[in-house]
C-alpha cells in the first residue's frame, strides 16, 4: 500500500487519490510551438530518482497538490503546507 501525505487530509491510501502525473511547467498555449506543446503533453522524464508529481485527493479534500516522490522507493517528501498546492523544494 502506498501512503500519500495529503496536505489537508493527512496520510491516505493511494486508492483514495488519483495520480495525475509528472508535474512540470505548462507552456503558454498562445505562444508555444507545436513541438513544445507535444513535449509538454507526451514526453516525460520518468527518472529513477526524486520527481515532482501531481496528485488529486478525490475521496478527501478534492484538491490537487504537488509533492516529491522517489520513483524507486516510493518515499514522499516536502508536501505542501495545509491549504497549499505546491510542495517540493523551494
Amino acid at each position: 500500500m502506498l501512503l500519500v501525505p495529503c496536505p489537508n487530509c493527512g496520510p491516505r491510501n493511494s486508492s483514495d487519490l488519483r495520480y495525475v502525473g509528472e508535474s512540470h511547467k505548462r507552456p503558454d498555449p498562445a505562444t508555444t510551438t507545436p513541438e513544445e506543446w507535444r513535449t509538454y503533453l507526451y514526453m516525460h522524464k520518468n527518472p529513477a530518482d526524486w520527481m515532482m508529481e501531481t496528485w488529486y485527493c478525490s475521496s478527501g479534500c478534492r484538491r490537487f497538490f504537488t509533492i516529491e516522490r522517489h520513483t524507486a522507493t516510493s518515499e514522499f517528501r516536502n508536501p505542501p503546507l495545509p491549504g497549499g498546492k505546491r510542495g517540493g523544494r523551494a
Binding site: C9, R12, N13, S15, D16, S59, G60, C61, R62
Partner: peptide, 10 residues
C-alpha cells in the same frame, strides 16, 4: 469531520 472511501463510495 473527514472524507474518504467507504465501501468504495466517496
Amino acid at each position: 469531520v473527514t472524507s474518504g472511501s467507504v465501501a468504495k463510495v466517496t
